[in-house]
Amino acid sequence: MSELLLAPKRMIELEIDGQSVRVFEGETILGACRRLGIDTPTLCYGDTLEPANACRVCVVEVEGARVLAPACSRKAEAGMKVQTDSERVRHSRKMVLELLASSVDLSTTDEIPGYLERYDAQPERFGPPAPPDPDRDRKRTGHHVEPDGQTAATVYAPVKIDNELYVRDYSKCILCYKCVDACGEQFQNTFAIHVAGRGFDARISTEYVAELPDSACVYCGNCIAVCPTGALMFVSEHALRAEGDWREDDQTVTTTVCPYCGVGCNLELHVQDNTIVKVTSPDDHDITRGNLCIKGRFGFQHVQARDAP
C-alpha cells in the first residue's frame, strides 16, 4: 500500500562497460549491473541488509574518480561511466579474493571457487597458512608480534560451541558485519555481538568474550541466515559436515507456515534423509525478510519426534 503512495521515481541513465542503462534514481551501481546482466562478485553484500561495503570484491572503476568504488553501495548517477572489467578492477578483485582466501577458511563459501577461477586468484602464493590462534579473542589492540613471513597470517581460531543451537567458527569469518547488523539495529535489536578489536585482529565478539548463553543472544538465528561463509551454522549442519555427510544435493526444501504464533512466517524446511537439518525463511518475504525467531528457526524437534505415542 505504502509503495503506491510514493512519488514516482526519476529514471537516470548511465553507461556501464559501454552499454547504456536506465535505472531509478537511488539505485546502486550493482543494481544497474544486474539490470544489464553483468555478473558482479559480492561477499559482504546481502539483499536484505544495508550494504556494509567492507569486502570490496565488487569494486568498479568510475570514470574521473581517483579510486575504485564499491558497486554495492555507490549510487548510480546520471552520466556516470563505469567499467566493471578493466585492468584495475580485475586486479583489485583478484587481490581482495587472494587476501581473503589466504587468511580465512572459505571452504563453505559456495561462490569462492568460481570467483577464484574467474580472477585467476592464487591465495597460496603468500605462504602456508598460519595455525589457529587460541588467544585471538584477547589480542591487545594496536600491538602484534613481528612476523617472519614464513607463514601467511590467518584469522583461524578454535571453533566456538557453547550452546545447543549453533556453532560459531570464526576461522571462516570475513568480517562482513552482516551478523552484527542483523543482531542489532537492522533486524533483531538484540545487540548481542559486535566487532571488537582493530585491524587484522578485529573479530566478532560478545562483551568480554562471554559465551553466548551469558550474552544477550536470543537464539533467533538471524545471524546464521545472513552469514555468507558458514562461519555461523546450525549445530545439525555443523555435525553433518564434520561427519562428511552434508549432502545439499540430496536435500529437499519444503516451504510451510510456522505454527507457533499468528504472524505466520514462512519457513523453509531443509530435509535430508527425512530429517530437518536446517530452517530458513525466504529473503524476499514481505514480513520476515529472511528472519525468524528461536521457535520458527529451531523449534522443529517435535516434528520428528517419531517415538511419541
Partner: peptide
C-alpha cells in the same frame, strides 16, 4: 597496527 579492519584491502 593502525588499520581499523573494516575493509579487506587494508585489513589483510
Amino acid at each position: 597496527n593502525e588499520s581499523c579492519g573494516q575493509c579487506v584491502p587494508c585489513r589483510v
